[in-house]
Amino acid sequence: MLTLEAPLDMHLHLREGAMLQVVAPLSAQAFAGAVIMPNLVPPVDSLERLTTYREAIEAAVVPHRFRPLMTLFFRAYDRATLEAARPAIIGVKLYPDGVTTNSSGGVSDLARVEATLALLEELGIPLLVHGESHGFVLDRETEFLPFYAHWAQRFPRLTIVMEHITTAGALALLDEYPNLAATVTLHHLLITLDDVAGGLLAPHLFCKPIAKRPEDRAALLAAALRTHPRLMFGSDSAPHPIHRKEAAGCAAGVFTAPVILPMLADLFERHEALDQLQAFVSDNARRIYGLEPPTKQVRLAREAWQVPERYGDVVPFAAGETLNWQIVEVR
Score class of each variant (00 low, 15 high):
Val41Ile: 13
Val41Trp: 02
Val41Cys: 08
Val41Met: 09
Val41Thr: 14
Pro43Glu: 05
Pro43Lys: 01
Pro43His: 02
Val44Arg: 01
Asp45Glu: 10
Asp45Phe: 06
Ser46Phe: 02
Ser46Thr: 12
Leu47Ser: 03
Leu47Trp: 01
Glu48Thr: 08
Glu48Asn: 00
Glu48Ser: 07
Glu48Asp: 06
Arg49Ile: 00
Leu50Asn: 02
Leu50Gln: 02
Thr52Ala: 09
Tyr53Glu: 01
Tyr53Asp: 02
Tyr53Asn: 03
Arg54Asp: 02
Arg54Leu: 01
Glu55Met: 04
Ile57Glu: 02
Glu58Arg: 11
Ala59Cys: 02
Ala59Gly: 01
Ala59Asp: 06
Val61Pro: 06
Val62Trp: 03
Pro63Gly: 00
His64Ser: 00
His64Trp: 06
His64Ala: 01
Arg65Pro: 00
Phe66Ala: 05
Arg67Asn: 00
Arg67Pro: 00
Arg67Ser: 07
Pro68Gly: 04
Pro68Trp: 03
Leu69Tyr: 05
Met70Lys: 02
Thr71Gln: 14
Thr71Arg: 01
Phe73Asn: 11
Phe73Cys: 09
Phe73Ala: 14
Phe74His: 11
Arg75Ala: 03
Ala76Leu: 15
Ala76Gly: 12
Ala76Cys: 13
Tyr77Val: 12
Tyr77Pro: 11
Tyr77Cys: 09
Ala80Thr: 15
Ala80Val: 15
Thr81Arg: 10
Thr81His: 09
Thr81Ser: 14
Thr81Ile: 08
Leu82His: 09
Leu82Phe: 15
Leu82Asp: 10
Leu82Ala: 13
Ala84Asn: 13
Ala84Ile: 12
Ala85Gly: 13
Ala85Asp: 12
Arg86Met: 11
Arg86Ala: 15
Ala88Asp: 15
Ala88Asn: 15
Ala88Ile: 05
Ile89Tyr: 03
Ile90Met: 13
Ile90Pro: 07
Gly91Thr: 13
Gly91Trp: 08
Val92Ile: 14
Leu94Val: 06
Pro96Gly: 07
Pro96Gln: 06
Asp97Phe: 03
Gly98Leu: 05
Gly98Ala: 06
Gly98Arg: 03
Gly98Phe: 01
Thr100Trp: 05
Thr100Glu: 08
Thr100Gly: 08
Ser103Glu: 04
Ser104Pro: 00
Gly105Leu: 08
Gly106Arg: 04
Gly106Pro: 09
Gly106Glu: 04
Val107Asn: 07
Val107Lys: 04
Asp109His: 10
Asp109Ile: 06
Ala111Tyr: 07
Ala111Ile: 00
Ala111Ser: 10
Val113Asn: 05
Val113Met: 05
Val113Tyr: 06
Glu114Ile: 04
Glu114Gln: 12
Glu114Trp: 04
Glu114Val: 04
Ala115Gly: 15
Ala115Asn: 13
Ala115Arg: 13
Thr116Phe: 10
Thr116Cys: 15
Thr116Gly: 09
Leu117Gly: 04
Ala118Gln: 14
Ala118Tyr: 07
Leu120Pro: 13
Leu120Arg: 09
Glu121Pro: 10
Glu121Met: 10
Leu123Cys: 12
Leu123Thr: 11
Gly124Tyr: 06
Gly124Met: 12
Ile125Thr: 11
Ile125Gly: 10
Pro126Ala: 03
Val129Asp: 11
Val129Gly: 05
Val129Met: 11
Val129Ser: 07
